[in-house]
Design a protein around this nucleic acid. Sequence first.
DNA 1: CAAGATTGACGAGTCAATCTTC
DNA 2: GAAGATTGACTCGTCAATCTTG
Lengths: 154, 154
Amino acid sequence: VVKTAWLSHDEQRTWRAFLATTELLDDAIDRHLQSVSGLTRTSYVVLAVLSETPGRALRMSDLARQANSSQSRLSHVVARLEERGWVRRQQCPTDRRGQVAVLTDTGYDLLATTAPCHVETVRRLFFDPLSQAQIRELGVICRAVLTALNPAGS
Amino acid sequence: VVKTAWLSHDEQRTWRAFLATTELLDDAIDRHLQSVSGLTRTSYVVLAVLSETPGRALRMSDLARQANSSQSRLSHVVARLEERGWVRRQQCPTDRRGQVAVLTDTGYDLLATTAPCHVETVRRLFFDPLSQAQIRELGVICRAVLTALNPAGS
DNA sequence: CAAGATTGACGAGTCAATCTTC
DNA sequence: GAAGATTGACTCGTCAATCTTG
């Protein structure tokens, strides 16, 4: 019954390995981030993106794009981050529809504390098992999939 | 402040690309599965694993391992699948603590209908942008990460 | 009417607690 | 006491509806 353009043997194996890897890796990283900082992967990425932006501020829609998040997801996340005082929202001066999310000093401090620990986990779980060449090749592969996924480009 | 064993340039680029790829790919696949079958990626994988097992039945803990899921997650998922009549639970004959999840005929039919469509999506989003060599190399890379992630092996 | 952003209800996953059997 | 499995409360993300400004 299941035969319409089925996967080849290599594809099947790769797909299974990819699924398992992303699932287990995501779970492990989520658990670690949660335990050391109370942050979700999503909220960590939001803080990280803000911290790298000049002025540590971004419009909600730009932030959503750069954090690979939907607008509604971002709204919820930022609302939670604001409750805890890590982010603040302001009216956008040039567009009255817009809101600008600003990383607070407290938020920056939290990120500065969390980041090294997080990076260490990423390195241990993800990079240590790979060679330099594999890391570069994986980058090429991901960007190829990304380009196809996101015709608009980022 | 953020300088403890930071990532190299290549690592940074690869990590960002990997994050974006998995996030966007997962979202796209979830949305597609949901729209054509009402299934989650998790529940789809559960049904798929069962369908490939002789007897279309597995103990909960084995099913959890093979579906890369926690026990509690699996309990919730199977409860939902059972409500809709796609899976049924039975006492394990050899261990009175155990439960066996069994794929029903209705569940199998649903999977048989959904699978080709899902595979088509996976092929289009994931495999089409990649060469044969890249697919094999990605498999090698994922298995290397997996091995490090899961010392017990599966 | 389209774009930016938010909200509320609902579905799904996590954690800790619990129950049963080994 | 540990393993198999479940449950309930809580958090997070999605979708559709809504509101406001362009």
